[in-house]
Design a protein around this nucleic acid. Structure first.
Lengths: 180, 180, 180, 180
DNA sequence: AATGAATGAGAGTTCATTCAT
DNA sequence: AATGAATGAACTCTCATTCAT
């Protein structure tokens, strides 16, 4: 039964991300359960409340973002890597409100900064510092505003449904402001 | 009873702004009515649905923003005026989700751009053009990204509850990116 | 002010009959007031409750039906007069639920039978007796079933929206059953 | 939980029939739920709206009426069978407004006439034709007026709360009118 | 005397959560 | 372990009735 349970957990997380992302936090648990092909009771076995399920997705996002950031940390061109990561996150965020929440927590939650696997803050900071050392980002820029700007772009991209043109033009301004 | 009705309308709008702003669109109508010191029926007399009440507040916001923008349009220093308006909006937005909705509509709704009193888009554009003519903002920057960045900052300021320091640092980057 | 009040009373009754008849008892008082061109308060000055207003209309109907019946009581051909009255009531009832209520009260309410102006029961009975004396209606038929059948036809005509053909065919059966 | 669900469905239908029949369509869902000993949510699980619940009862009535009619279709004396069915329906209808609605639908809805199990129209027509072939009902009488008269009697019986005497006397007239 | 704004109980309906199966 | 039927509080909205103007 271990395997079944694991598969169900994965299914639930995936379905919840899809449904909550598309319909907002007010989406019914039934809809998530139906998408996952399980009963609502099965979700409640894993997550005591809807809020807990949402948090689990946010944490999952953080983990994936941190992974991407770490993957770019070794890149040959630190400046390009940093800006690519920034743009990539905003691009993915367009239809996904949850990205912004993931980043919000990263900016606020101190514990998250220390948790190894989910240390998105540390991973992004590595990118930032390397880009600064390469002279591609101004030295006086610090992490809080990076996360703030990243969150802002994600929120607005999702809220206003930015198309590619608008995303490019808006990020151009931000990147211009980050460069020396 | 004309006077009473007017006072009640004002109370309702004020209470709705406060409550919806604080608790989001999911705040119950009862809560708004209680805050306004009226019965729920009194709200429904003026606004047929909750959505209509929300829209009324958004429109009111647009009007106020447009007024502020127009007031700054004659300022002696166009660059300072533009950046001051930008910063002012974000500052006010910090606890008010509704600013972002007002701006989102301005970016999307074409009709809003033509309605005299609520023409926030036109008012901001005047500020932008004058700042560009004064050489304080890059010529290639256009209205869509201005509204997108303004919305983004408002959303994030509210979502993450930006303090003054964070707001200053984040806007510094954006303003740096807008300058030549 | 007496004239104004009287005119308002007439207007209210007329509007109430129209609206309640068309939309049923669940029609809002506002709708009736609007149709009458008065405020709701004006209705409540004349009728303490919605129920009282409805009763007033029923009584008014009874009065009119009784008048029609009395007018036919002197007719040359008693049989034709009786059947004509029966058919006439059903015809008028088609879109007017209130006819049936007026008749129902006539069948039940003993006081109504004694009240001069509203004595629909007495007026119909005169028609019936004369038709029986003329040999056009069977002697063993009595008032209770006459009112019951009349009510039944009115209710169904309104409920099923009888057209002329159906009304004629259904009443043919009833009239055939009443004749010797 | 299949058994519980079935029991609850039966309870809900039974309670709904009783309450809607007694208090009309304006009876609150809460009252039905309380009568059935379940929560309102349980009703909404089976019936998406109050209207749907009402329709379910009407359809159920149609089914039962059609069954009774079919049972009588083989009877030895066609005339007696037809009149017995007519009287039986009116008798049962006395406290049940829903019978009339079931019949109204039968008279209007063409689809109902083709649906096997609910084909009340077809079942009654069989009774009628056999009674006519046996010379007990006039040949010129047709289905539309039969259903109209049946509905009328049911409506009035419920509306005026006919007692046995009144029912007998009223139906005597109708049956007399149907006979040659 | 007339108005209609205000009230608030109560309507239908939804959905997070529980728990019998 | 998994299901989904059941629960009922809470939601938005309506409308009979009251009462300040």
């Amino acid at each position: 039964m271990r395997t079944d349970a694991q598969r169900n957990l994965a299914r639930v997380l995936s379905a919840a991300e899809e449904v909550l992302t598309r319909d907002g936090l007010s989406a019914p648990m039934r809809a998530i359960a139906a998408r996952a092909g399980v009963g609502v009771g099965t979700i409640y076995r894993q997550f005591p409340t809807k809020e807990a399920l949402y948090q689990a997705i946010v944490v999952d996002r953080q983990r994936r973002l941190a992974e991407e950031a770490r993957a770019l940390a070794e890149a040959a061109e630190p400046g390009a890597a940093f800006f690519a990561f920034f743009a990539r996150v905003v691009e993915d965020a367009t239809p996904k409100k949850i990205f912004a929440d993931a980043l919000t927590e990263a900016g606020i939650d101190v514990k998250a900064a220390t948790a190894g696997a989910h240390d998105i803050r540390g991973a992004v900071e590595t990118l930032l510092v390397r880009a600064q050392q390469a002279g591609e980002v101004r030295r006086e820029v610090e992490m809080p505003e990076i996360l703030a700007l990243l969150t802002a772009a994600c929120l607005a991209a999702q809220h206003q449904n930015w198309d590619e043109t608008l995303r490019t033009r808006a990020l151009d301004v931000v990147f211009h402001g980050l460069r020396p």
